[in-house]
Design a protein around this nucleic acid. Structure first.
Lengths: 171, 171
DNA sequence: AAGATAACATATGAGTTCCGTATTATCCGG
DNA sequence: CCGGATAATACGGAACTCATATGTTATCTT
């Protein structure tokens, strides 16, 4: 068989491994950056994750947010208490369903956190400037797929947890 | 002025914005995945971050790890206590400097966590299979740069914190 | 249509974690 | 050797997490 072909296959395998390693690294560094930013605005890093979710996924209910963030509902109450007390978010009752609450991010303070990410932001601009358009498309595409894969993997783990403690598997 | 050129510039700007959004999303999803994995092995998610760092950056000292992970040294003592008690890592005294300690990951249990990431792992294999070699190189390269940018940004924030509380700026 | 049931958010409290500071052990320069 | 610096940990108060309980409102059942 062709050594050229198997050589290419090896390269691909190696690259895939490199990508996984880079992804672990990336997650870790971004996680640390997140921690530093959190410390600056005097919230827990989990709180900042939630704030980010609230900002991006519009006004939403605490229970929805709990599912989205993968935290216990009671924990989320505490998180929202802190975010609300510090003026990051507002709670308002849902007019459709008066049991429910809608949480929305307040725009004023959001600028602060944006400013803290300014360094990372401009660094990313510089990095992106080094690629051509089709390459940027590849990168954006890859990251969206990877994020989706992460979401699915997390969901499967959550479901598995469910199955382990509850009924084995619904028919 | 050329509408074609400004159109391309607009596309690039849009792509850069998309990449930043995708990166936020990616970080968030991976963070949630991390939380689920942590819950499965009964450790805090910060603990898992540290375990990952220990695994990847070989045996290292608690103080080095504290710097690397961006956590308070006293907090790290607690983290290591938990990881050690559960059999994830071992502490051993450094023979060169008997004040110091070396922390190393124990291989046995590491397989468990590997298994929990199996779903994500195979999903990434599939995703990577959809790109050709040069595209994979672009992705790997981008992620390494982004991780580096994150590290620098976090470092700058940490230094700024230092400057804010200590001397304004050393000459 | 009325009552039972479920869903939503939050209160409560026990157990755990975080982190500023103090303590102990060790290294290094003079 | 000794004084100062550095590594890791001990300690304790404040803060956090989470299982469970509670009060309110919606939805289902018959």
């Amino acid at each position: 068989m062709s050594s050229v072909l198997s050589g290419e296959a090896d390269d691909r395998r190696g690259l895939t491994t490199q990508i996984k390693a880079a992804l672990r690294d990336l997650r870790n560094e971004l996680s640390i950056l997140n921690r530093q930013v959190s410390a600056r605005i005097a919230v827990k890093d989990g709180d900042l994750d939630c704030l980010d979710l609230i900002t991006r996924h519009g006004p939403l209910s605490p229970s929805g947010l709990a599912r989205l963030a993968g935290v216990h509902p009671a924990t989320l109450t505490g998180i929202l208490d802190r975010l609300e007390r510090a003026g990051w978010v507002a709670r308002e009752r849902d007019v459709q369903d008066r049991r429910a609450v809608l949480v929305r991010a307040l725009p004023q303070r959001s600028r602060e956190v944006f400013h803290l990410y300014a360094g990372m932001n401009s660094a990313l601009d510089e990095i992106c400037a080094g690629y051509d358009q089709s390459q940027l498309e590849v990168v954006a595409d890859f990251m969206r797929r990877a994020a989706d894969a992460g979401k699915n993997a997390a969901q499967e783990l959550a479901d598995g947890e469910q199955a382990a403690h509850g009924k084995p598997s619904p028919p």
